[in-house]
Design a protein around this nucleic acid. Structure first.
Lengths: 187, 187
DNA sequence: ATGCGCATGTAATCCGTTACATGATTGG
DNA sequence: CCAATCATGTAACGGATTACATGCGCAT
């Protein structure tokens, strides 16, 4: 059985909150999902067309004079059903690929300082990502965090905080271990 | 500029340790890299052929009577150069995709208990993965962890421990938050 | 003038998975 | 007798990225 496109469900999910154009969806994904999902136009527009053919979304065209017409998509009852079903099925095995770990695994092939530099850059990226999340969290009131439906977005941010902090902790430890190695071996 | 195949570098890396067949490489990846990389035969064999054409690996055929000939690949000096260069370049932006977070983000569309179940299953998977890593760590002596070239494999495992623990911690917190919600809203 | 935001999409290409195809040996 | 291990690969397909194509309005 072939692999199933998951991006279609993210699109359905976004449309379940409010109708949107392909352009809107792209912005939404960038602003809200960027740390755990991403999609380009080359995926969004064809997927919207496919979803429409399948009757999972409907399209309402708003004419505009000076720009391409806005194609505003809405989720249909059938679409809501498919979405709810997917949301209830267990998460598939996720095959994560950590390029940093591959590079580090073969780190004995290059100077230790190169490895340290890779780790430092990795840590800096994670620190920036963590800061962005901290800002998000501050915008949510305590009530929203634990009570309304905003609890779900909050939980995703919470995961990001945990994972980014873990990455930063690791980077600090790893860098120290390599610095000691460097001191012992090269001098 | 098209996307560059990174699996080729993993293959080069493995061959830089010792010559191997496609079959060997698959086993290696499964046993040693499984938590941060994966590859199937459909990728390995064609990639090996491509690498040979580019002169980055060479092939030595060992005839066998009862089985297909073993094609033992070795890395060439050119291959070592390409590998070292890649290892020294900064890690590219990693686009991670957490299916669990997508599902949770839209969690208000389904019963809370479904979300809790998803979180529990997620935690159980991470716990199993963590246990496997703990076994690996115990096999490495303290000296190896901090001194020889085995420090690099050790650092990758260390990352795994940090990230898996963070995921488990998050799952515990998230479950508790949802359990409280369930108690308040439904009764 | 230059670039950004709005707004659509297609085509080429590559990456990766899955299914298919073959077949002997060994251990339980 | 059945499953696992060894050992090779190809073909078809689907997923995702990148490059290409168009074009106005507005702010700097």
């Amino acid at each position: 059985m072939a692999k199933i496109n998951k991006s279609r469900f993210i699109i359905l999910g976004i449309l379940s909150m409010k109708p949107a154009t392909g352009y809107d969806i792209k912005k939404w994904v960038e602003e809200t999902f960027s740390f755990f999902w991403d999609m380009g136009y080359g995926q969004i527009y064809p997927t919207l067309q496919a979803l429409e053919k399948e009757g999972l979304v409907s399209c309402n065209i708003e004419s505009q004079d000076t720009r391409p017409d806005r194609k505003v998509y809405s989720i249909t009852p059938a679409g809501s059903g498919v979405l709810a079903e997917w949301l209830s099925t267990p998460v598939e095995e996720e095959k994560s690929r950590y390029e940093i770990l591959v590079k580090l695994f073969f780190g004995d092939k290059i100077p230790i300082l190169h490895n340290i530099k890779n780790i430092q850059e990795f840590r800096e990226k994670k620190q920036k990502e963590l800061e962005i999340l901290e800002n998000f969290v501050q915008e949510l009131s305590t009530k929203e965090k634990r009570n309304s439906k905003m609890v779900f977005p909050y939980l995703t941010i919470l995961m990001g905080q945990h994972v980014f902090k873990a990455s930063i902790d690791w980077a600090n430890e790893a860098e120290e271990i390599l610095r000691n190695l460097e001191g012992n071996d090269n001098h």
